[in-house]
């Protein structure tokens, strides 16, 4: 069975997470490490994908700065999005050659992971044709944006658990004028760590791999 290491990184600034991903992608390409699933939170940040339109940012950069929100242009697919405390961000670094060489199947699988994790908390996530992500009653609960280089993935999904949804008012999420929601707003007041556990279990089922971890805190002692 393929192995996937998972890590809980806590709250990580977007730029730092980007650097870590690049490092891991390089190692993954060299076959130096197995597949990885990074689970983390970002401090308030708004990111714009390569194909994003800046008009979907509704606030001037100075306004963001005053509100303590960072802004990044990034190399993932998708349009504009917000990350912040209470949102589980998942960055799988997978070599798709060992799974399926199919980026669309990959995105559908990420949706499946989130749908199965939501089910653990009694919520029914859905797909909406032509609108990648996971939705509940017409509101988006998880966004997806991926980058692939030589079949190795980076970026991934952003899943609102207890996110302060007010921050989405600075943007048109994913360029869609559709509302967003969170698990807490829907009455499922889960802790991030419980959600991590549900995601890891679902990831293992959907990608048919053995999850090893969390690997970060285990081995740092003299």
């Amino acid at each position: 069975m393929r192995v996937c290491e998972w890590r809980e990184l806590g709250r990580v600034r977007y730029g730092d997470a980007l650097r870590l991903q690049r490092e891991l992608v390089e190692k993954r390409k060299q076959g130096a490490i197995p597949d990885q699933l990074l689970l983390l939170e970002h401090p308030h940040v708004i990111t714009l994908g390569r194909n994003g339109r800046l008009q979907n940012l509704l606030a001037a950069p100075e306004v963001l700065e005053r509100a303590g929100i960072e802004f990044f242009h990034t190399d993932r697919g998708g349009d504009i999005t917000y990350h912040g405390p209470g949102q589980v961000v998942g960055y799988p670094i997978l070599d798709l050659r060992e799974w399926r060489r199919d980026v669309v199947a990959y995105v559908r699988a990420l949706e499946q992971v989130i749908i199965e994790a939501l089910a653990q908390f009694g919520l029914r996530g859905e797909r909406v044709e032509g609108r990648t992500g996971v939705w509940i009653d017409g509101r988006k609960i998880a966004a997806i944006g991926v980058h692939v280089s030589r079949w190795v993935t980076s970026h991934g999904f952003a899943f609102n658990v207890s996110t302060d949804l007010n921050y989405f008012r600075y943007i048109v999420p994913c360029g869609l004028a559709a509302p967003v929601t969170s698990m807490w707003e829907l009455g499922a007041r889960a802790e991030l760590r419980e959600v991590h556990a549900a995601l890891v279990a679902a990831f293992s089922r959907v990608f048919e791999c053995e999850m090893i971890g969390p690997v970060i805190p285990a081995e740092q002692v003299k």
Partner: peptide, 16 residues
Amino acid sequence: EALFEISTDKVDTEIP
């Protein structure tokens, strides 16, 4: 070497 990038759905891919 990465030559161009393409986009399908929500995935950006570098093409060597």
